[in-house]
């Protein structure tokens, strides 16, 4: 059981929450995630990256976008409410060292998991360039926090409503063409963005890491539901990852697997909305 200590809406569909979780706060490292359930009996288990932690307060921060049933219900919960199931920290922490010049690319909500990693890379002595991108200005999150870490900072939006009107791959390509080129790139965001970031850096042979957010059930390596093909080998994202060499990941298969339950989820979502409407009507 974990109490919600703080809640803030970052953009239309994006929320930040601080949750009481003293053990996780103490153990977690950059790159790790938690799994939560909002109903002990009938809830589904969803993975969320730990965006930040405060060991003294015994809390962790999660940032999530409303994309399905659970994130929607989570967004309706308030300070003081308790999340019945919270387990972590899961996954292998990011390998942090001094690479030299690193580029951190965050797309949309992907900026949240990127934040602790960028912070750790900076602390390890790297020269950190940060690119963040979103569809429009409203969807940019953690701008100030990221700016603080960055030696060089680039913002892009798809519609040009803020920063450069470009996809993140554009400045990424330019950075790869510079001399010296980056020693390492880490890209976190929607699968399609990570795929194209990997494709962008491939010709320049710049080591590129991506953080995969597959479907998960247990999160401890027991079910294989999170498996991906990396360099021809089957890997479990929840234990071997979530970070992998982007040049080796089979993104197409991963994206297909992400859609495995789309039809069922949509059906459920409709029922769910009907139920919410019904409840509201009763209230009135």
């Amino acid at each position: 059981m974990s109490k919600i200590l703080y809640k803030e809406q970052l953009s239309e569909n994006v929320y930040l929450m601080r949750l009481e979780a003293p053990l996780i706060a103490e153990e977690r490292k950059a790159g790790q995630f938690i799994i939560l359930q909002i109903d002990e009996d009938f809830g589904e288990r969803i993975p969320l990256t730990i965006a930040d932690a405060n060991a003294e307060e015994g809390s962790i921060t999660i940032i999530f976008q409303v994309v399905g049933l659970t994130t929607e219900e989570l967004s309706l919960m308030n300070v003081g409410d308790a999340i019945p199931v919270l387990v972590g920290p899961l996954g292998t922490p990011t390998h942090i060292k001094n690479y030299g010049n690193v580029v951190c690319v965050g797309g949309g909500i992907g900026v949240a998991p990127l934040h602790p990693i960028a912070e750790a890379l900076k602390a390890a002595g790297n020269n950190v360039t940060i690119i963040i991108g979103a569809r429009n200005k409203e969807l940019i999150i953690l701008e100030d926090e990221m700016k603080k870490i960055a030696d060089e900072f680039i913002i892009c939006t798809d519609d040009g409503s803020y920063g450069r009107k470009a996809l993140v791959t554009e400045p990424l390509k330019e950075l790869c063409e510079r001399d010296p080129k980056p020693d390492m790139v880490i890209a976190i965001g929607p699968p399609i963005m990570m795929k194209f970031c990997s494709e962008t850096t491939r010709p320049y042979k710049v080591f590129t890491q991506v953080s995969l957010n597959t479907i998960m059930v247990d999160g401890t390596g027991m079910c294989g539901g999170c498996r991906v093909n990396v360099g021809g080998e089957v890997k479990f994202v929840c234990v071997d990852g979530p970070e992998f060499d982007g040049h080796l990941v089979d993104f197409d298969n991963m994206m297909q697997r992400l859609n495995a339950f789309k039809d069922i989820e949509e059906e459920k979502h409709h029922c769910h909305i009907d139920k919410l409407v019904e409840l509201k009507e009763k209230e009135l």
């Binding site: 059930v217 027991m222 079910c223 294989g224 539901g225 498996r227 991906v228 093909n229 089957v234 089979d250 298969n253 297909q256 697997r257 859609n259 495995a260």
Partner: peptide
Amino acid sequence: NLVGVFSANE
């Protein structure tokens, strides 16, 4: 790894 292949555990 196709969609529709599951481990019994899952």
